[in-house]
Simulated assay, not measured.
Amino acid sequence: MITRDVNEFLQLARNTAPDFGPATARAAFMVAPDGFQLAEQSAADNRYMAEASAFDAARASAQHRELQRALSQVIPTICFAGDPETPDALFPNNVFATARVEGVPRYVVGRMRHPVRQREATRADIRRFFADTLGYAAVDLSTQPHPCELTGALAIDRARGVGFAGLSERCDEQGARLMHEALGLRATLMFDLAPGEYHTNVVLAVLAGRAAIICPRGFADPAVVAGIGALYAPHAILLSPAEHAAFAGNAIALSDDAVWMSAHAGRSLDGATRAALAAAGFDLRTVELDAIEAGGGSLRCCVGEIF
């Protein structure tokens, strides 16, 4: 099922067992921020990006390395070399995603909106890693016309096999349908992001299949917020505008017991949010990423998941 009808989606999702697959990834991959600088095309529809003068490539590289080191304490985390011709490549989860469909592993290549990011989809080394080293089958969406920026545009509950596709210039309805099919999901809810939002993973994070972090101002329709909140109650955590602006919605769980976000996001959390994460069984882990956040994304954007 793929639908815009919140009630229809909830009726199916509530009765879906958490047996689709592991709730968290078995490994992660990253792409180094080599040549990190302002990408003018991406800045056209990403209000989170800083001015060119705020970019510090050396600091971004050091923080990215520290992020890899930290995540490697939890799951195997590899990092591919970057390319100065692709300054946004440090956010690879928009371009490459993985899934197991009926037990068969596959990797999906997304269709990026901007030409500067479309170059990332041609990376032969990353494609060979998935195809030759891991033996994953390919589903290549990069050459069709509909934008579908994978786990930037689509937040996924991997335990239930359900997705949440926020529509914007980075993902249209047909793009959402293509991702739904490529990842073999049981159900996907499509909805409009609020004006000015570019990716779902900045405003929604599903944590290990049992909790959700939601930024209400990131959704065009409050009914969608209410529906997602009902699905994950009592562990639906609504963020304040200040927490939203600090990238606290751009979080990820890579194990059953911890949620990761940037240090800036972590400092923004109020007591109620911290208590709600603890009640859901998550420790909070953070890494300083202020230089990377100048590029309009944060911790979750840097992490590609391998299932």
Rank of each mutant, 00 (worst) to 15 (best):
R128S: 15
Y136E: 03
E169W: 13
G175I: 02
L167I: 11
R160K: 14
N93L: 01
A194H: 09
A211C: 10
R106E: 00
N93Y: 11
I126W: 07
I126H: 04
P195V: 00
M179Q: 13
G135E: 05
E85L: 14
R113Y: 04
R117F: 00
V203C: 15
V104A: 15
A176Y: 04
H199F: 15
A165P: 08
M112R: 11
R111C: 05
F130A: 00
I214C: 11
A194W: 09
P195G: 09
V203N: 06
I126C: 07
R117M: 00
R127E: 01
F96Q: 03
R158K: 09
H180N: 11
M112W: 09
L141Y: 03
P84W: 07
A159G: 04
S142P: 06
E120H: 10
V95K: 02
L150Q: 05
T143K: 13
A155R: 03
A212Q: 03
Q174D: 11
H199M: 13
R106P: 01
E173P: 13
R160M: 12
L193S: 05
P92A: 07
G209N: 00
R186L: 10
H180Q: 08
I214G: 01
D140N: 12
A121C: 12
D140L: 05
R128C: 14
A97M: 11
H180E: 02
A124E: 10
G110E: 04
F129I: 04
V162W: 00
L167K: 09
M112P: 03
A89K: 10
A194S: 10
G135V: 04
L150C: 10
C171H: 12
R123P: 00
V162M: 02
T151V: 14
E169T: 10
L167P: 09
A99F: 07
V109E: 05
R117H: 01
T151Y: 05
Y198G: 04
Y198R: 06
A159K: 00
V108R: 03
P145R: 13
F164C: 11
G161E: 12
Y198H: 07
N93D: 12
F129W: 14
G152V: 06
R113Q: 04
R128L: 12
A138K: 11
L204M: 12
F129D: 05
L134M: 15
E149A: 02
R128G: 14
E173Y: 02
V116F: 02
D88C: 13
R113C: 02
G166C: 12
N94E: 07
A211K: 05
R128K: 15
G110R: 06
G166A: 11
A159M: 08
M112G: 06
L150G: 01
